[in-house]
Design a protein around this nucleic acid. Structure first.
Length: 130
DNA sequence: GTTCTCACA
DNA sequence: TGTGAGTA
């Protein structure tokens, strides 16, 4: 019988380059539920996949609670469709937020251009006056 | 090495 | 959304 391999919290923190504290934090937020062996946490391959998905979600800028919503559908699993649809919604929402942010940045950069131009003109006038 | 809790930003 | 310290 092929028994499934398991991982300790330090195994996973090393593999994914996150602190053990962070992994426990995700557990506290109900994103992962590792088994216990006494006090020790035992992570299955499935937990490992969940952690990988959590970290990917974070890279995309999703909040932990959003990630939890998506992950929870993995368990309920009324077919993958619902999960994929939710993910698509989240992606679209996130994309809009990023695009709005980009517009804000562009506006700020444009303002800086203006201000910089004014500063340089002002400096030129002073040089003439001296 | 791992656990928990409290304080802190 | 995490970190650091102190503990058992």
């Amino acid at each position: 019988m092929m028994t499934e391999r398991t991982y300790s919290i330090s195994d996973l923190s090393r593999e994914f380059d996150v602190t053990a504290r962070a992994i426990r934090f995700y557990e506290d937020k109900d994103l992962i539920q590792p088994m216990r062996e006494g006090q020790r946490r035992i992570y299955t391959a499935r937990d490992r996949v969940r952690l990988k998905l959590i970290l990917r979600g974070k890279r995309l800028g999703f909040s932990l609670s959003e990630i939890k919503d998506i992950l929870d559908l993995y368990d309920t699993d009324m077919g993958e469709s619902r999960q994929l649809e939710l993910l698509l919604d989240k992606i679209e929402e996130r994309r809009r937020a990023l695009e709005a942010h980009r517009r804000d940045i562009d506006l700020t950069l444009a303002e800086m251009d203006d201000l910089e131009r004014q500063c340089r003109e002002n400096l030129k006038e002073r040089a003439g006056a001296d």
